[in-house]
Amino acid sequence: MSPVRLIDIWVYLAASPLLHLTLTVTAYLFSDWLYRKSGNRSLLHPVLIAVIVLVVILTTTNTGYPRYFEGAQFVHFFLGPATVALAVPLYRNFARLRQMWLPLCFGLLTGAVTAALSAVFLAWLLGATPQTLLALAPKSVTAPVAMGITEKLGGPASLTAILVVSTGIVGAVIGPTILNWCRVSDPAVRGFAMGTASHGIGTARAFQESEIAGAFSGLAMGLNTLVSSLLIPPLLDVLGLIP
């Protein structure tokens, strides 16, 4: 096949969503394989590696993010149904949930406030711009909701998306160690903390520990969307950060 023909095929494929959808799924499968092959080395978190691989591919082929997202949106879309699907493990652990709902409420409220305030305060201390502070505040909330919060506050929603994903990866990597340091062994409590601090990516990590941890992490992620969307706007307003 002549090189001209190959370029034609490339141009044709790059214009359809198929190419970037396939790239997203295969880059993730490769990263997941690498992660398991390495004996679950936490720094080789599959999302981190997949993002690096994709950014390198897109930069070398000179593809912009909007073009990439035309294909990747089909994966992104499933964040919604996946949130709904969390109902199944929750239902299975309902007895446990009913037993400890009050402590979980306390944990959620303090966790959500700590997440927003610590993110804003630490970044402010180190000289981040006001726009970055707005993007950082909802970083522990799952992607689509966090983006909605920042947007409503007049901040950069797409920056929030990256910070949310970074927070998820960091939580998945350091979470189990931090919880061991705090001597928390109850899988329900471990899961709940992972979900509050690092949403869906933390939940995926919690499911690796046990089904109970995963179910409670999913619960925390769901409840945190609610608490944070109610708390973050007035909190930032009090701090005088809203333009």
Binding site: T24, V25, A27, Y28, D32, H45, P46, V47, A50, V51, L54, Y68, F69, A72, Q73, V75, H76, F78, L79, A82, A143, A161, I162, V164, V165, G168, G200, I201, T203, A204, F207
Partner: peptide
Amino acid sequence: LSLLFVPA
């Protein structure tokens, strides 16, 4: 679940 965060 992690896969779904890759596009973002």
